[in-house]
Design a protein around this nucleic acid. Structure first.
Lengths: 209, 209
DNA sequence: GATTATTAACTGACCGGACAGTTATTAAAA
DNA sequence: TTTTAATAACTGTCCGGTCAGTTAATAATC
């Protein structure tokens, strides 16, 4: 949208602006974090100027909240529905969930959010709270639910589900951070698929009755 | 050290300054991040003024590197020596390493660094590179070394060591981030010891031949 | 259908505070 | 008396937020 400046510049497109600004802000926040991201950068990416942003959002922080709210919650809801609708064995459910999660890792837009949250949660407690309630808490309920069902059905041994939650998801989270922060400094690229395969095998061996 | 300003102010204590400034910087960086932390804050905590910092460090970034070097690198080196000196079974070595790692999690000073790095690595490639070379790379070599030895000695099954590295350390990293970012929002405190115990059991079951 | 008036989406120069880094000055120590 | 650790005032720059002005779109008038 930034390319055709001559064409779109000075066009009055009230309805289109909000999502365009949010999209640009997601990219920019994801790359540089909340504090380091400049409103001028966001504006340029959205094909407008800084002043225009203030026509649609009261300030930088509200724009940030809007970015988080509108880009993640729908995906969580989708995940909940998929799991609730099936009654496959717990190991199969877990495997599918992790594989879809692993697919998100390279996604440039949504995949940038966890890093963003980790970076800013300390300085913006209300953002942390919102993210915890809407994303983390629900994600945890999803995973621990599968684990509990697996134990009840004798598909997993008796494990500490709250602790195992970390063992299950953490490698994917760290892989996601690694991709964005350290892969450039490493000799070889991180093979997400191999990582997921290896991790699933470890989990299935480790949790087998 | 900030309390006795009257006493230490204008005292010339060349040798004492460096560690005092580094300690103050570690605290401040850990609380607010690299970019958000003000040199005036660090100076006040160290019981000096900003100008004094520039007598001992060329700039903010070098001060940060010094913080990393003084607080994390020695621990890595110690770990390397312990592992190199012993010829215990690989599972025992891995268990001991993870338990010491888990002890660091609640440590308010050193434990703050990973979050700090994740938050700032994108904006400060120099810092990311430095941390990758001095901490991550060496830590990975340590872990994968133990895994390879375990496989060679028949104590672990044939696993993808590079991928398993993530499965091994990631839960502790995420627990460390969780403690600092989301524990306040959760109903119960995160039981680090239980987490470590559960994770070790999962690993040992999962990697057994 | 063509011209003019009105609206409001959008711009960009500007302001003020914050902060990394500098330096002239001061005072403790040798 | 000289040296130098430490200070405090200073500078230049950067950036969030503002607002007077600009222009595309639309309505009113001829």
């Amino acid at each position: 949208m930034a390319a055709d400046t001559q064409a779109t510049r000075w066009r009055r497109r009230k309805d289109a602006r909000t999502p365009e600004i949010i999209e640009a802000a997601l990219e920019c926040f994801g790359e540089r974090g909340f504090a380091a991201c400049r409103l001028d950068d966001i504006a340029r990416r959205a094909g407008v100027t800084k002043g225009t942003i203030y026509l649609y959002f009261p300030n930088k922080e509200e724009l940030f909240k809007a970015v988080i709210s509108r880009s993640l919650v729908p995906r969580i809801v989708a995940g909940e529905q998929v799991v609730a609708a099936s009654d496959l064995p717990a190991p199969v459910q877990l495997e599918r969930l992790l594989l879809t999660l692993a697919e998100i890792i390279p996604s440039s837009t949504v995949g940038a959010i966890p890093k963003l949250i980790i970076a800013e949660a300390g300085n913006f407690p209300e953002i942390a709270r919102f993210y915890f309630d809407e994303v983390i808490s629900r994600g945890r309920r999803l995973i621990t639910g599968i684990l509990r069902r697996g134990i009840a059905r004798g598909e997993f041994r008796e494990i500490d589900v709250d602790a195992t939650f970390f063992s299950v998801v953490a490698p994917l989270i760290v892989a996601l951070l690694w991709k964005r922060l350290f892969e450039v400094h490493d000799d070889a690229a991180l093979d997400t698929a191999a990582l997921c395969r290896s991790h699933l095998q470890l989990l299935m061996h480790g949790m087998a009755p």
